[in-house]
Protein backbone atom coordinates (compact mmCIF):
# COMPACT_ATOMS: atom_id res chain seq x y z
CA UNK A 1 0.00 0.00 0.00
CA UNK A 2 1.39 3.39 -0.95
CA UNK A 3 0.48 6.06 1.60
CA UNK A 4 2.52 8.91 0.16
CA UNK A 5 0.59 12.13 -0.16
CA UNK A 6 1.27 15.86 0.04
CA UNK A 7 0.75 17.91 3.17
CA UNK A 8 -1.92 19.85 1.27
CA UNK A 9 -3.76 16.59 0.62
CA UNK A 10 -3.53 15.72 4.32
CA UNK A 11 -4.95 19.09 5.36
CA UNK A 12 -7.72 18.81 2.74
CA UNK A 13 -8.92 15.72 4.63
CA UNK A 14 -9.38 17.69 7.84
CA UNK A 15 -12.69 19.41 8.53
CA UNK A 16 -13.91 22.35 10.55
CA UNK A 17 -14.68 21.44 14.14
CA UNK A 18 -12.47 18.34 14.21
CA UNK A 19 -10.41 17.29 17.24
CA UNK A 20 -6.76 17.20 16.20
CA UNK A 21 -3.90 15.75 18.26
CA UNK A 22 -0.42 17.07 17.61
CA UNK A 23 2.67 15.01 18.49
CA UNK A 24 6.00 16.25 19.83
CA UNK A 25 6.66 18.16 23.04
CA UNK A 26 7.01 21.96 23.47
CA UNK A 27 9.63 23.04 20.92
CA UNK A 28 10.57 19.47 20.01
CA UNK A 29 9.64 17.45 16.91
CA UNK A 30 6.41 19.20 15.99
CA UNK A 31 4.84 18.62 12.53
CA UNK A 32 5.32 22.30 11.65
CA UNK A 33 5.07 21.91 7.86
CA UNK A 34 1.55 20.55 8.45
CA UNK A 35 0.80 23.38 10.89
CA UNK A 36 1.87 25.90 8.23
CA UNK A 37 -0.41 24.16 5.74
CA UNK A 38 -3.32 24.52 8.18
CA UNK A 39 -2.44 28.19 8.73
CA UNK A 40 -2.82 28.72 4.95
CA UNK A 41 -6.11 26.78 4.80
CA UNK A 42 -9.70 27.78 5.57
CA UNK A 43 -9.96 25.35 8.49
CA UNK A 44 -11.48 26.68 11.71
CA UNK A 45 -13.10 25.73 15.02
CA UNK A 46 -10.54 23.01 15.72
CA UNK A 47 -10.11 21.39 19.11
CA UNK A 48 -6.38 20.90 19.59
CA UNK A 49 -4.86 18.32 21.95
CA UNK A 50 -1.12 18.79 22.46
CA UNK A 51 1.92 18.97 24.70
CA UNK A 52 1.97 22.44 23.28
CA UNK A 53 4.53 24.77 21.80
CA UNK A 54 4.46 27.14 18.83
CA UNK A 55 2.08 24.72 17.08
CA UNK A 56 -0.65 25.71 19.54
CA UNK A 57 0.39 29.37 19.66
CA UNK A 58 0.31 29.76 15.86
CA UNK A 59 -3.01 27.96 15.38
CA UNK A 60 -4.60 30.09 18.13
CA UNK A 61 -3.17 33.31 16.72
CA UNK A 62 -4.44 32.46 13.25
CA UNK A 63 -7.99 31.94 14.52
CA UNK A 64 -8.06 28.21 13.76
CA UNK A 65 -8.85 27.05 17.26
CA UNK A 66 -12.05 26.83 19.26
CA UNK A 67 -10.69 24.84 22.18
CA UNK A 68 -7.28 23.76 23.48
CA UNK A 69 -6.80 20.66 25.63
CA UNK A 70 -3.42 21.21 27.30
CA UNK A 71 -1.19 20.75 30.33
CA UNK A 72 1.30 23.40 29.23
CA UNK A 73 2.15 25.49 26.21
CA UNK A 74 5.83 26.46 26.21
CA UNK A 75 8.84 27.12 24.01
CA UNK A 76 11.14 25.81 26.80
CA UNK A 77 13.94 28.41 26.65
CA UNK A 78 11.18 31.00 26.28
CA UNK A 79 8.95 29.56 29.03
CA UNK A 80 5.66 31.18 28.03
CA UNK A 81 4.27 30.78 24.50
CA UNK A 82 3.49 34.37 23.51
CA UNK A 83 0.50 33.85 21.21
CA UNK A 84 -1.16 31.19 23.33
CA UNK A 85 -0.80 33.65 26.19
CA UNK A 86 -2.53 36.39 24.19
CA UNK A 87 -5.33 34.04 23.17
CA UNK A 88 -5.93 32.97 26.77
CA UNK A 89 -5.81 36.50 28.12
CA UNK A 90 -8.35 37.65 25.52
CA UNK A 91 -10.85 35.34 27.23
CA UNK A 92 -12.05 33.98 23.90
CA UNK A 93 -10.47 30.54 24.04
CA UNK A 94 -12.22 27.46 25.39
CA UNK A 95 -9.83 25.28 27.35
CA UNK A 96 -9.54 21.97 29.10
CA UNK A 97 -6.47 22.34 31.30
CA UNK A 98 -5.24 19.03 32.67
CA UNK A 99 -2.10 17.42 34.06
CA UNK A 100 0.47 16.04 31.58
CA UNK A 101 -0.15 12.52 32.79
CA UNK A 102 -3.94 12.93 32.60
CA UNK A 103 -3.52 13.74 28.91
CA UNK A 104 -1.60 10.50 28.46
CA UNK A 105 -4.41 8.61 30.23
CA UNK A 106 -7.04 10.29 28.03
CA UNK A 107 -5.16 9.22 24.91
CA UNK A 108 -4.78 5.69 26.28
CA UNK A 109 -8.50 5.49 27.08
CA UNK A 110 -9.29 6.50 23.49
CA UNK A 111 -6.76 3.99 22.16
CA UNK A 112 -8.20 1.18 24.28
CA UNK A 113 -11.85 1.99 23.65
CA UNK A 114 -12.54 2.84 27.31
CA UNK A 115 -14.83 5.76 28.14
CA UNK A 116 -12.42 6.83 30.91
CA UNK A 117 -9.49 5.77 33.05
CA UNK A 118 -9.71 6.31 36.81
CA UNK A 119 -6.85 8.29 38.33
CA UNK A 120 -6.01 10.18 41.50
CA UNK A 121 -4.48 12.98 39.44
CA UNK A 122 -6.32 16.26 39.77
CA UNK A 123 -7.95 15.48 43.12
CA UNK A 124 -7.74 18.40 45.53
CA UNK A 125 -6.84 20.89 42.78
CA UNK A 126 -8.66 23.39 40.60
CA UNK A 127 -8.32 20.98 37.67
CA UNK A 128 -11.47 19.24 38.90
CA UNK A 129 -13.20 22.58 39.56
CA UNK A 130 -12.61 24.48 36.31
CA UNK A 131 -13.18 21.54 33.97
CA UNK A 132 -16.89 20.86 34.17
CA UNK A 133 -16.51 17.83 31.88
CA UNK A 134 -14.30 16.04 34.43
CA UNK A 135 -16.37 13.78 36.67
CA UNK A 136 -15.46 12.10 39.93
CA UNK A 137 -16.47 8.47 40.46
CA UNK A 138 -16.56 6.13 43.43
CA UNK A 139 -14.47 3.02 43.29
CA UNK A 140 -16.15 -0.40 43.54
CA UNK A 141 -13.01 -1.65 45.30
CA UNK A 142 -12.14 1.02 47.90
CA UNK A 143 -13.72 3.96 49.68
CA UNK A 144 -11.92 6.64 47.71
CA UNK A 145 -13.14 8.93 44.96
CA UNK A 146 -11.32 8.97 41.63
CA UNK A 147 -11.11 11.33 38.68
CA UNK A 148 -12.66 9.68 35.61
CA UNK A 149 -10.29 10.96 32.93
CA UNK A 150 -12.38 10.80 29.74
CA UNK A 151 -11.08 9.32 26.49
CA UNK A 152 -9.53 11.99 24.26
CA UNK A 153 -10.77 10.66 20.94
CA UNK A 154 -8.99 12.30 18.03
CA UNK A 155 -10.32 12.71 14.51
CA UNK A 156 -6.74 13.04 13.35
CA UNK A 157 -3.20 12.98 14.72
CA UNK A 158 -0.39 14.99 13.12
CA UNK A 159 3.13 13.75 13.78
CA UNK A 160 6.66 14.45 12.54
CA UNK A 161 9.28 11.68 12.60
CA UNK A 162 12.81 11.46 11.28
CA UNK A 163 12.27 8.47 8.96
CA UNK A 164 9.30 6.73 7.38
CA UNK A 165 8.53 4.59 4.37
CA UNK A 166 5.64 4.74 1.91
CA UNK A 167 3.72 2.02 3.81
CA UNK A 168 3.69 4.11 6.97
CA UNK A 169 6.45 2.44 8.98
CA UNK A 170 7.70 5.40 11.04
CA UNK A 171 10.99 5.54 12.92
CA UNK A 172 11.79 7.95 15.73
CA UNK A 173 15.51 7.65 16.47
CA UNK A 174 15.74 10.73 18.68
CA UNK A 175 16.00 10.17 22.43
CA UNK A 176 12.24 10.38 23.12
CA UNK A 177 9.16 9.51 21.10
CA UNK A 178 7.10 11.48 23.67
CA UNK A 179 3.42 10.40 23.50
CA UNK A 180 3.35 10.17 19.71
CA UNK A 181 2.41 6.48 19.74
CA UNK A 182 -0.61 7.27 21.93
CA UNK A 183 -1.65 10.15 19.66
CA UNK A 184 -1.56 7.72 16.73
CA UNK A 185 -3.52 5.09 18.67
CA UNK A 186 -6.13 7.61 19.86
CA UNK A 187 -6.81 8.91 16.34
CA UNK A 188 -9.03 7.76 13.50
CA UNK A 189 -6.38 8.93 11.04
CA UNK A 190 -2.70 9.69 11.51
CA UNK A 191 -0.80 11.92 9.13
CA UNK A 192 2.97 11.79 9.34
CA UNK A 193 5.66 14.03 7.90
CA UNK A 194 9.25 12.77 7.88
CA UNK A 195 12.73 14.12 7.29
CA UNK A 196 13.85 11.10 5.30
CA UNK A 197 11.91 8.66 3.17
CA UNK A 198 13.32 5.14 3.44
CA UNK A 199 12.71 2.24 1.10
CA UNK A 200 10.57 -0.68 2.21
CA UNK A 201 13.43 -3.06 2.86
CA UNK A 202 13.85 -4.66 6.26
CA UNK A 203 15.05 -2.72 9.31
CA UNK A 204 17.84 -3.66 11.66
CA UNK A 205 16.78 -4.74 15.15
CA UNK A 206 17.81 -1.32 16.52
CA UNK A 207 15.84 0.51 13.84
CA UNK A 208 12.83 -1.72 14.41
CA UNK A 209 12.85 -0.72 18.10
CA UNK A 210 12.51 2.89 16.95
CA UNK A 211 9.10 2.07 15.43
CA UNK A 212 6.48 2.78 18.11
CA UNK A 213 3.24 2.03 16.30
CA UNK A 214 2.21 -0.40 13.59
CA UNK A 215 1.85 0.86 10.02
CA UNK A 216 -1.89 0.10 10.04
CA UNK A 217 -2.26 3.23 12.21
CA UNK A 218 -0.53 5.49 9.68
CA UNK A 219 -2.89 7.01 7.13
CA UNK A 220 -0.56 9.18 5.10
CA UNK A 221 3.15 9.99 4.79
CA UNK A 222 4.80 13.10 3.35
CA UNK A 223 8.54 13.54 3.11
CA UNK A 224 9.43 17.09 4.15
CA UNK A 225 13.13 17.41 5.08
CA UNK A 226 13.39 20.14 7.73
CA UNK A 227 9.62 19.92 8.22
CA UNK A 228 9.83 20.28 12.00
CA UNK A 229 11.45 23.73 11.76
CA UNK A 230 11.56 25.89 13.90
CA UNK A 231 11.20 22.97 16.36
CA UNK A 232 13.88 20.29 16.69
CA UNK A 233 14.09 16.85 15.17
CA UNK A 234 16.80 15.04 17.14
CA UNK A 235 19.23 13.63 16.14
CA UNK A 236 19.02 15.55 12.85
CA UNK A 237 18.73 19.19 14.00
CA UNK A 238 18.00 21.33 17.05
CA UNK A 239 15.41 24.04 17.43
CA UNK A 240 15.97 27.46 15.92
CA UNK A 241 16.43 29.76 18.91
CA UNK A 242 16.97 32.86 16.75
CA UNK A 243 13.76 32.19 14.84
CA UNK A 244 11.81 31.58 18.07
CA UNK A 245 13.15 34.84 19.52
CA UNK A 246 11.97 36.71 16.45
CA UNK A 247 8.60 34.91 16.59
CA UNK A 248 8.33 35.91 20.24
CA UNK A 249 9.15 39.54 19.40
CA UNK A 250 6.22 39.66 16.94
CA UNK A 251 3.92 39.18 19.92
CA UNK A 252 5.17 42.50 21.30
CA UNK A 253 5.24 44.30 17.96
CA UNK A 254 3.51 43.55 14.69
CA UNK A 255 1.40 40.67 15.91
CA UNK A 256 1.08 37.22 14.41
CA UNK A 257 -0.15 38.65 11.10
CA UNK A 258 3.27 40.22 10.53
CA UNK A 259 5.01 36.91 11.26
CA UNK A 260 2.60 35.09 8.95
CA UNK A 261 3.15 37.63 6.16
CA UNK A 262 6.89 37.46 6.49
CA UNK A 263 7.28 33.68 6.48
CA UNK A 264 4.17 31.69 5.65
CA UNK A 265 1.57 33.45 3.52
CA UNK A 266 1.67 32.40 -0.10
CA UNK A 267 4.81 30.30 0.34
CA UNK A 268 5.44 26.67 -0.44
CA UNK A 269 7.41 24.77 2.21
CA UNK A 270 10.62 25.16 0.18
CA UNK A 271 10.00 28.90 -0.17
CA UNK A 272 9.43 29.04 3.60
CA UNK A 273 12.74 27.28 4.11
CA UNK A 274 14.50 29.77 1.83
CA UNK A 275 13.08 32.61 3.92
CA UNK A 276 14.44 31.11 7.16
CA UNK A 277 17.93 30.54 5.73
CA UNK A 278 17.59 27.35 3.68
CA UNK A 279 17.42 23.62 4.41
CA UNK A 280 21.20 23.39 4.90
CA UNK A 281 21.00 25.98 7.68
CA UNK A 282 18.10 24.12 9.32
CA UNK A 283 20.03 20.86 9.23
CA UNK A 284 22.97 22.54 10.95
CA UNK A 285 21.00 23.84 13.92
CA UNK A 286 22.78 22.54 17.03
CA UNK A 287 20.93 20.15 19.32
CA UNK A 288 20.06 21.70 22.70
CA UNK A 289 22.07 20.81 25.83
CA UNK A 290 19.94 20.11 28.90
Amino acid sequence: MNKLMTTREMVSRLENGMTIGIGGWGPRRKPMALIREILKSDLKDLTVVAYGGADVGMLCAAGKVKKVIFAFVSLDFIPLEPFFRQARQSGELEVMEIDEGMMLLGLRAAAWGCPFIPTQIGLGTDVVRVNKELKLVDSPYDNKEWVAMPALKLDAALIHVDRADSRGVCQISGPDHYMDDWFARAAKHTYVTCDELTDNSSLTATEARNVFWERSLTTGVACIPGGAHPTSCAPLYGFDTAHFKEYNSFAREGGFAAYFDKYVQGTSESEYQQRVGGLDAIQQLALPVY
Binding site: S74, R88, I98, Q120
Partner: peptide, 22 residues
Protein backbone atom coordinates in the same frame (compact mmCIF):
# COMPACT_ATOMS: atom_id res chain seq x y z
CA UNK B 1 -9.42 36.03 39.56
CA UNK B 2 -11.19 35.07 36.30
CA UNK B 3 -9.96 31.65 35.15
CA UNK B 4 -11.58 32.08 31.74
CA UNK B 5 -9.83 35.36 31.12
CA UNK B 6 -6.60 35.22 33.13
CA UNK B 7 -4.68 38.40 33.81
CA UNK B 8 -1.45 36.52 33.12
CA UNK B 9 -1.38 33.15 31.41
CA UNK B 10 1.66 31.21 32.58
CA UNK B 11 2.70 27.62 31.81
CA UNK B 12 -0.42 25.64 32.64
CA UNK B 13 -0.69 23.14 35.48
CA UNK B 14 1.95 20.89 33.82
CA UNK B 15 2.65 17.89 36.08
CA UNK B 16 1.75 19.61 39.37
CA UNK B 17 -1.57 17.80 40.00
CA UNK B 18 -0.08 14.35 39.45
CA UNK B 19 3.19 15.05 41.23
CA UNK B 20 1.53 16.50 44.31
CA UNK B 21 -0.80 13.57 44.93
CA UNK B 22 1.72 10.87 43.96
Amino acid sequence: SDYHKPKVQMLGVRGFPGNSIS
